[in-house]
């Protein structure tokens, strides 16, 4: 297995979706290729960083909402022809 072949199926590997033979082949590759071990680490880091950048306690969630938006929503509801009666 080459690094390219490994990286092509990296997602499937991380999600446990490969055959036992494929996983064994990957294990053998990783044993010989520290660069791909580093690549997996950085790939996992990337997934975690994406999740954390938007879901943390410091997320830029407004504490208030523009009054114009509230009024626009309420007006839209009154004008909605499909509103429940």
């Amino acid at each position: 297995m080459t690094c390219k072949e490994f990286i092509d199926i990296l997602d499937a590997y991380l999600e446990g979706g490969l055959t036992p033979e494929q996983r064994a082949e990957i294990s053998a590759h990783l044993h010989l290729c520290p660069e791909c071990v580093d690549y997996i680490d950085s790939y996992r880091f990337t997934i975690r960083a994406a999740r954390d950048c938007c879901c943390g306690a410091e997320d830029p969630v407004p504490t208030d909402v523009p009054e114009e938006l509230v009024q626009a929503v309420l007006a839209a509801l009154k004008q909605d022809p499909d509103r429940p009666s």
Partner: peptide, 19 residues
């Protein structure tokens, strides 16, 4: 996307990441 040499190894693999 990652780039590869003709032998399937990654071009310029870089160093381990630091968090």
């Amino acid at each position: 996307l990652p780039r590869f040499r003709s032998d399937g190894h990654r071009e310029a693999p870089g160093l381990p990441w630091v968090e």
